[in-house]
């Protein structure tokens, strides 16, 4: 068998690390210390595994690890940080929706459209101030297959895609904390919704007309999260010491 040593090295990785290598998915809810063990295991991947086929998906070290480390600083002691990540990309057939025909006209003889919806990241955490945080990232790709016929009767098929991303961050405020609307409005590209109930819920939604990569993706998520925390200045948060 080829790559025998590499296979043996992968077998010694953290179990969730192995799942990321073989299935490109991750679903776990565990305390921050356990996440630190996983991150430590992931950080040694490139030095051990040289085979490109078994490389980690780029979003693991580019997005997942920085987010876990950053949000882990705010998680309540012993509280869980939940991550569901599907990093298989947009190709699995179950992510594609139904194909349907759009009205064709002129030289366009047939126009087929379908959408691929890829909800690739979901994070949930109980924070140290008693609030609950949820982050959900969904990539949405529109495919259009266009059959057209030229003046000479020559047939052409064009395939066009348009990629957008919807990022939704939600924070359920601690009991008894109403928060105050920030004096400065958020950037125009962030939509904010507030829902009152037993616990106030603030939702920030961003629809991006491109899919950011690596550090840009982390920045976009963290910058959107800022809006949720501007509602509770540090004076209203529970302080220790």
């Amino acid at each position: 068998m080829f790559w025998k040593k590499t296979r043996a090295a992968i077998a010694r990785f953290h179990p969730l690390h192995q799942t990321l290598v073989w299935q490109h998915t991750l679903a776990a809810s565990m305390p921050v210390d356990d996440w630190a063990q996983l991150v430590h295991s992931l950080s040694g991947h490139e030095t051990v595994v040289r085979r490109r086929r078994w490389a980690l998906p780029p979003r693991v070290m580019g997005v997942l690890v920085p987010l876990v480390q950053t949000l882990g600083e705010d998680v309540a002691p012993g509280g869980p940080l939940t991550v569901e990540a599907d990093l298989r990309g947009e190709n699995p057939p179950e992510k594609a929706g139904q194909h349907y025909q759009l009205p064709a006209h002129g030289r366009i003889r047939k126009l087929t459209e379908w959408f691929v919806v890829d909800p690739w990241l979901r994070i949930g955490a109980e924070l140290d101030d008693g609030s609950r945080l949820e982050v959900r990232v969904v990539d949405r790709i529109r495919h259009r297959k266009i059959h057209k016929i030229g003046a000479s009767g020559k047939r052409k098929v064009a395939h066009k895609t348009r990629r957008t991303q919807v990022l939704r961050c939600r924070r359920v405020l601690p009991r008894g904390v109403a928060g105050t609307r920030p004096t400065q409005p958020p950037p125009a590209w962030i939509r904010v919704a507030v829902k009152d109930g037993r616990r106030r819920t603030i939702t920030a939604t961003v629809k991006s007309d491109r899919i950011p990569q690596g550090g840009d993706q982390v920045d976009l998520i963290l910058t959107t999260l800022v809006e949720l925390f501007r509602w509770t200045p540090p004076t209203t948060a529970r302080r220790i010491g």
Binding site: T70, E73, D74, L127, D129, S131, P234, A237, I240, G241
Partner: peptide, 17 residues
């Protein structure tokens, strides 16, 4: 005397140890 280093990323609080 307790540690006054600020910890956390969004939820800022003093260490308190």
């Amino acid at each position: 005397t307790t540690c006054t280093v600020t910890r956390g990323f969004f939820v800022l609080r003093h260490c308190g140890v």
